[in-house]
């Protein structure tokens, strides 16, 4: 990180008193710098380009399937486009989220930039928050790009503005936010990006399998053996504490809105709060690790 990027907000915040300056000092500059740096990463650009190609190609893929013998009608075409795009956004979006969240802190430790930044009057909390916000900026911009192309694709396909898609994208972000926060926390403990990337993938997979813990909890205790009962307790505990990414399946439901769907307005605010709470927990874990890190 160059000195300039830190100096600028430092001079502005000099005028801000006490607590306010603590939370604003350098945050914006670090976040914007993280975003700029992240957007230049080849891995991320690769994923982004691939995802855009898949979303754009979904339209052509269905055309190809028709001539290739599958007698799919227009509705089936639209369904295929929706499914391909949702899958592409989920897969590439989560990969971008994991790679970016995993690499921002370890990357700076590896390049030794972090030493320069922390030698300035920047607190670790502010540095970490700036980094976290920068990561979120990258995720949001990528999601907006992918969602935008999906929006156009669907508009061409259906001929009407797919406004429900905006809710789908909105909820997808909160799913990514949870994955991002916990990957970021692992990143704070690691000195290279490899471990956090593996950890992030693990979080995403297990987050989608949390329901499985619910099944285990429900079925445990049938034999009344101690181990069986103990597994039941453990599964119940984990089921109640770990984030359940299947809760975000509402995003698909919104996209395919069926007339018998329950009113979604009851669920969306709850999911937003759910995402924010887990993200806060993830960030605090990251901070606890990072503040004690020897640098």
């Amino acid at each position: 990180m160059t000195d300039e990027s830190v100096k600028k907000p430092q001079s502005t915040s000099d005028k801000l008193p006490g607590v306010v300056s603590v939370f604003t000092l350098g945050l914006g500059a670090i976040a914007v710098y993280t975003w700029r740096e992240g957007m230049r990463k080849k891995t991320m650009i690769g994923f982004l380009v691939l995802s855009l190609l898949v979303i754009f190609g979904a339209w052509f893929l269905t055309a190809f399937l028709q001539t290739g013998g599958a007698q799919v009608d227009t509705e089936l075409d639209t369904k295929l486009v929706k499914d391909i795009c949702v899958t592409a956004i989920s897969i590439f979006g989560v990969l971008i989220t994991i790679f970016i969240s995993a690499s921002v802190v370890p990357g700076e430790v590896e390049n030794r930039i972090i030493y320069t930044v922390l030698s300035k009057p920047v607190r670790r909390f502010q540095y970490l928050m700036g980094k976290f916000l920068g990561v979120q900026l990258i995720i949001i911009i990528n999601l907006a790009l992918m969602g935008g192309l999906f929006f156009v694709n669907l508009y061409i396909q259906e001929g009407i503005l797919p406004t429900l898609l905006l809710w789908t994208i909105f909820l997808t972000y909160f799913e990514f936010l949870i994955v991002s926060a916990f990957t970021f926390a692992i990143g704070c403990a690691a000195s290279s990006a490899v471990l956090p990337v593996i950890g992030g993938l693990f979080i995403y997979i297990t987050g989608n399998l949390t329901e499985y813990l619910g099944d285990v909890a429900r079925r445990a205790g049938q034999t009344e053996a101690f181990l069986d009962v103990a597994i039941g307790w453990l599964a119940t505990g984990l089921y109640n504490v770990l984030p359940n990414l299947q809760n975000f399946s509402l995003r698909n439901q919104l996209l395919y809105l069926q007339p018998n769907d329950p009113p979604a307005d009851a669920m969306i605010p709850q999911m937003v709060v759910y995402g924010l709470l887990y993200a806060a927990a993830g960030y605090v874990i990251g901070y606890i690790i990072f503040r004690r890190k020897e640098l």
Binding site: G214, P243, Y274, L277
Partner: peptide
């Protein structure tokens, strides 16, 4: 609180 919120969602 997130776990409690998760139960609300469930």
């Amino acid at each position: 609180v997130a776990g409690w919120q998760g139960q609300q969602l469930s």
